[in-house]
Amino acid sequence: MIIALENGGGSQVSLGWHESFTIVKTSRLVAKQVGLSGQIYLGKEYAGRTVLIDSIEPVVWVIKTAQTIPDSELWLHQPEASARLDRALLAIIEPPNADDLDVLEQQLSCK
């Protein structure tokens, strides 16, 4: 069961060992009507945004704003690539000491 209230936050409420429900507090509760073409107007502040619509029950929808990652940039979010980028950014902030070539070689060969 989801109960919508006004003014901030959210909390989980337990009704016993087998039953619980979530109280969702929203800053505003708004009724919208689905048009004949199947569209819902969310307002100008959401124009052009990507949203995810989760149909948790046939009559309950949760709409969340989302950001998409282009396929050509997805590799950047893999753990190995992310770690390499972190090391590169660290090298920019704290450049290795070029006086000690053994340490420099070790830092450059790290994966």
Rank of each mutant, 00 (worst) to 15 (best):
M1K: 10
I2Y: 07
I3T: 14
A4I: 11
A4F: 11
E6V: 12
N7F: 08
N7G: 15
N7E: 15
G8P: 08
G10C: 01
Q12R: 14
V13S: 11
V13A: 03
S14D: 11
S14N: 08
L15E: 09
L15V: 11
G16R: 10
G16W: 04
G16M: 01
W17D: 15
H18G: 10
E19T: 12
E19R: 13
S20Y: 08
F21T: 02
F21V: 00
F21R: 02
I23K: 03
I23L: 10
V24C: 00
T26C: 14
S27C: 04
S27W: 06
R28V: 03
R28L: 01
R28I: 04
L29Q: 14
V30D: 12
A31K: 15
K32F: 04
K32I: 05
Q33M: 02
V34Q: 07
V34K: 09
S37V: 11
G38V: 00
G38A: 02
Q39H: 13
I40P: 10
I40T: 11
Y41T: 09
Y41M: 08
L42A: 03
G43E: 03
K44A: 12
K44L: 03
E45Y: 03
E45P: 07
E45L: 01
E45G: 06
Y46D: 02
A47C: 01
A47W: 08
R49P: 02
T50L: 12
L52V: 12
L52A: 12
L52E: 09
I53C: 13
D54E: 11
D54S: 14
D54Q: 05
D54C: 07
S55E: 15
S55R: 15
S55T: 13
S55Q: 15
I56G: 07
P58V: 10
P58I: 01
P58M: 02
V60S: 15
V62G: 00
V62L: 10
K64G: 02
K64H: 14
K64E: 15
T65K: 03
T65M: 00
T65G: 03
Q67W: 02
P70N: 09
D71P: 13
S72D: 14
S72L: 01
E73K: 15
Q78V: 00
E80G: 04
A81G: 01
A83K: 09
A83E: 09
R84C: 04
L85S: 10
L85A: 12
D86S: 10
D86N: 13
R87I: 00
R87V: 05
A88Q: 10
A88E: 12
L89F: 00
I92E: 11
I93L: 00
E94A: 08
P95S: 09
N97R: 11
A98Q: 04
A98T: 15
A98I: 14
D99G: 07
D99H: 13
D100V: 04
L101V: 14
L101R: 13
D102H: 07
L104V: 13
E105K: 12
E105G: 08
E105H: 12
Q106H: 07
Q107L: 15
L108S: 01
S109I: 04
S109Q: 05
S109C: 05
C110G: 08
K111T: 11
K111Y: 05
